[in-house]
Computed example of a mutant assay.
Amino acid sequence: MNRFPSIHYGRIDVDGVEVHYRESVPERPDAPVLLLLHGFPSASHQFRRLIDALGADYRLIAPDYPGFGETVAPEDFTYTFDRLADIVEGFTDRLGLHRFAMYLFDFGAPVGLRLAERRPDRVTGLIVQNGNAYLEGMSEAARDFTALSPEQPGAEDTVRGLLALEGTRFQYETGTPDPGLIAPESWTLDQHYLDLPGRKEAQVALAFDYKSNVERYADWQAWLRKYAPPTLIVWGTGDPFFTEAGARAYLRDLPEAELRLFDAGHFALETHLAEIAPLIAEFLDRDR
């Protein structure tokens, strides 16, 4: 019989932000810790099946960033990637997380790599899933989108077009050979949160700030070379934003990393959980 973990849902105040999170309660108190950093436009709920699959053996912790999911931020919160990293860093401090691996997906890569720069002694390893840190990993569409600036005519309308239901569903289904494997509540739940008051404005601000991530790629690559954390790279090759070249680029700086490619889209866990979860378990067991 399969073992299913107990899941705890909590809230922690971090600098005036009410951070919502979910975490598994493993059977062993000394189980390895994996901080799950979600992508756009999702939240911690994107990891619910992974937590069910592995949470009995590992402590999996997934916060919602400000502007996402159930987290509540003050009206005057400044939505930049630096501020998201500030809140996640404060969140790990409040939970007393001193040693953990990180799962970097999409927005989770720039958030997590900022945290890694600040607290390299805490990072035991990285699992990278369609989380880009290399120029060659950006598709033409991604380059055009991240180059947008608020002063450009029509730029905000372009961003807001991706925040509609059609844009959210596009992110899940594009590049996926069998969209029938993706539960429709995945994109409809994301859309529910996107449609809450103030959320689209938060996402517009983050979209315009994304170029700050690209500017730091060289620094993050240098960090990877310096600290050489154990790394597992799992990547959906049909991703319309972050290409296979971005997955392979990590091997320049982390030649010992394990690379696994899947015929999947951006949200590879939606369709390939059965293949990816055992790889994560093996990685965390080595990390132990």
Rank of each mutant, 00 (worst) to 15 (best):
D76T: 00
A116G: 02
G55E: 05
L97G: 05
R114Q: 14
Y58V: 11
G112S: 01
I61T: 13
D121M: 01
D106W: 12
R118V: 12
G55A: 04
T124W: 04
Y58C: 09
R99Y: 08
G108L: 13
F100H: 15
D64L: 05
F107G: 00
P66Y: 15
F107R: 04
E75I: 00
T71S: 08
V123Q: 01
H98L: 08
R118C: 07
F100Y: 15
E89Y: 13
L95P: 00
L60N: 06
A85K: 12
I87D: 13
E89V: 15
D57P: 06
R114A: 14
L84E: 11
Y65M: 04
I61M: 05
D86S: 03
G55P: 01
D106F: 09
Y65R: 01
D57T: 09
L115C: 09
T80W: 04
G96N: 01
D121H: 02
P74I: 02
G96L: 02
V72I: 14
V123I: 11
F77W: 13
P120I: 14
L126S: 03
D82R: 09
G112Y: 01
L104H: 05
A56M: 07
T80H: 01
R59I: 13
H98T: 13
T124V: 10
G96P: 00
G112N: 02
F100E: 15
V123K: 00
R99T: 11
A85G: 13
P120K: 07
F107L: 07
D76S: 03
F91N: 05
R114E: 14
A109Y: 07
A53G: 11
V123N: 00
V111Q: 00
R122V: 11
P110G: 05
T78A: 06
Y58S: 09
L126T: 05
A73N: 04
G96T: 07
G125R: 04
E89D: 15
A62E: 13
V88S: 02
F81Q: 06
T92F: 08
E70R: 09
G90Y: 08
E89G: 15
L97Q: 06
D76H: 03
Y65W: 03
R59E: 13
D64T: 03
V88A: 03
E89N: 14
T78V: 11
L104G: 03
A73W: 08
P66T: 14
G112A: 02
A109N: 04
G69K: 02
L54V: 01
L115W: 08
R119D: 06
M102Y: 02
R122Y: 05
G90V: 11
T92M: 09
V123M: 02
R114K: 14
D82I: 03
A101T: 15
